[in-house]
């Protein structure tokens, strides 16, 4: 975290296509983008313009076809499959539109999953997760199953899961679009409060203009390219929130 480099992600002329021949779909047609540490960057644009694809490439879930990509000073293209999995496990947090919680696990156990994946034992992992849930305002619901939680509560659990292992990059795809306006607003508020901090970058893909106010930077995307980057309303905000004291993992 004592990273002198203020950029978390650098994309240069990144391309990505699906399929080949006549059925080839060019999802990314040369993306140039920098994501800064300590900021909440929003990626916005019309449906099908390539936001999710770009997020997947940045997160190391998809390989790009061309261009240069640097994530947290590393080049995913040079990593082996194993190294990439380990890189994600250590450095990335994910928030999904559909929450993607494991329905058979309690809220605390769901939050604990990244710690379990890193080799923590169950008791320690769940204890840390319960602490973090309390900081997310969910102290009474730690033992609840996802099916017993509201959408907003589930997304808070997902947020906990994205934060528990203190990742340096958090990627969120449409985190509010499965929620009503008020709940979505609350989740974004929480996200910007507890997730954004020095040494960490947060990328949020959204086309929900009501939450633009939480952005430090807004990148407008269209047809597989970044069209425009503008400062967001939150840029002026003091980045001085010290969120959850979750355990650091090596």
């Amino acid at each position: 975290m004592n990273n002198a480099n203020e950029t978390a992600v650098v994309c240069r002329d990144v391309t990505k296509w699906f399929g080949q021949g006549a059925s080839r779909v060019d999802a990314l047609r040369g993306v140039d983008l920098e994501i800064r540490m300590g900021e909440l960057s929003m990626l916005v644009g019309p449906s099908g313009c390539g936001k999710t694809t770009l997020l997947s490439v940045i997160a190391g879930l998809l390989d790009s076809n061309g261009g240069e990509l640097e994530v947290l000073d590393e080049k995913p293209a040079r990593m082996t499959k194993q190294e990439r999995i380990q890189f994600r496990r250590r450095n990335l947090g994910f928030v999904f539109q559909q929450f993607n919680l494991l329905p058979a696990l309690t809220a605390a156990e769901n939050v604990a999953v990244p710690l379990l994946a890193a080799g923590f034992n169950r008791i320690d992992a769940v204890r840390e997760a319960t602490k973090l849930l309390a900081e997310l305002g969910m102290e009474n619901r730690a033992a609840a199953l996802p099916s017993e939680l509201s959408g907003g509560q589930q997304q808070r659990v997902a947020l906990g899961r994205a934060l528990i292992h203190q990742p340096r990059l958090i990627v969120c795809d449409e985190p509010t679009s499965a929620l009503d306006a008020k709940t979505g607003h609350a989740v974004m508020e929480l996200l910007s409060e507890v997730a954004v901090r020095p040494g960490r970058a947060v990328i949020v893909v959204t086309h929900d203009s009501r939450v633009f106010e939480f952005a430090d930077t807004i990148a407008h995307m269209d047809d597989g390219r970044i069209q425009e980057i503008e400062p967001g309303a939150a840029r002026a905000r003091q980045i001085a929130n010290f969120g959850a004291a979750a355990p650091a993992i090596q």
Binding site: A59, L61, F94, A117
Partner: peptide, 16 residues
């Protein structure tokens, strides 16, 4: 499958 996908994304190895 979605759950396994989430686990894979989070960084649970194939072997695991």
């Amino acid at each position: 499958l979605k759950q396994f996908g989430a686990l894979k994304a989070i960084g649970v190895s194939d072997r695991r």
